[in-house]
Amino acid sequence: MNQSKQSPPIRRAGGHQQITMLVLRAILLSLSFVLSALDHSLPSFVPGVPGMSLGLANVVVLFALLFLNWKDAVFITVTKSIFVFFLRGPVSLLLSVSGGLLALFVEILLWKLSRGKVSLMLLSAAGAMSHNVGQIIAYALYARVAVWILIPPLAVMGIVSGVITAIVLKAIYPFMERWFRTHRSYEGEGTQ
């Protein structure tokens, strides 16, 4: 009777793997919340340009895209935007989701088109620039204000923050690779 109550070893291992991945997703989501809140608390880098931030949460989204899959990256982006809604209201939700989804779309497109050959710097910078572009398009449509003057500083900032994000990702890449190899739980389901 005791034996019949026990799960088969393979199912036990599967459950463990699922829990491991669930915990990883929860950690990434929490991290994206914290980084997003931290980003917002910092003052604008250039006066007169709304939304000028480092885009720290982009590290987490890009990480999810590279190590998990695009669905997890979309999930983190959308859930982070909902968190932003509770924290700062519906307009911030609009800006967050428009920037986040455009950035993700460009990153996925670049990754797929280059078949994983694109460098982290270009991938991250393109994502950060698209994030800013998505935000100012939403801002312009909503507020009906001039936006051309905002494009150059946001684009330059996007490139700089994208390069910083890429360096951070490259630094943690070997550790995470080792972690995944140890847990051996998510073979072949990457962005590729």
Binding site: L66, S119, L120, I159, K170, E177, G188
Partner: peptide, 27 residues
């Protein structure tokens, strides 16, 4: 992760740095 182990993305390459520098120059 097997695929990622064999296809680890590089931090930068010459082509991408040229693209980034061009974008940075224009903007």
């Amino acid at each position: 992760m097997t695929e990622q182990s064999t296809n680890r993305p590089v931090l930068s390459n010459k082509r991408d740095i040229i693209i980034l520098m061009a974008l940075l120059g224009v903007f």
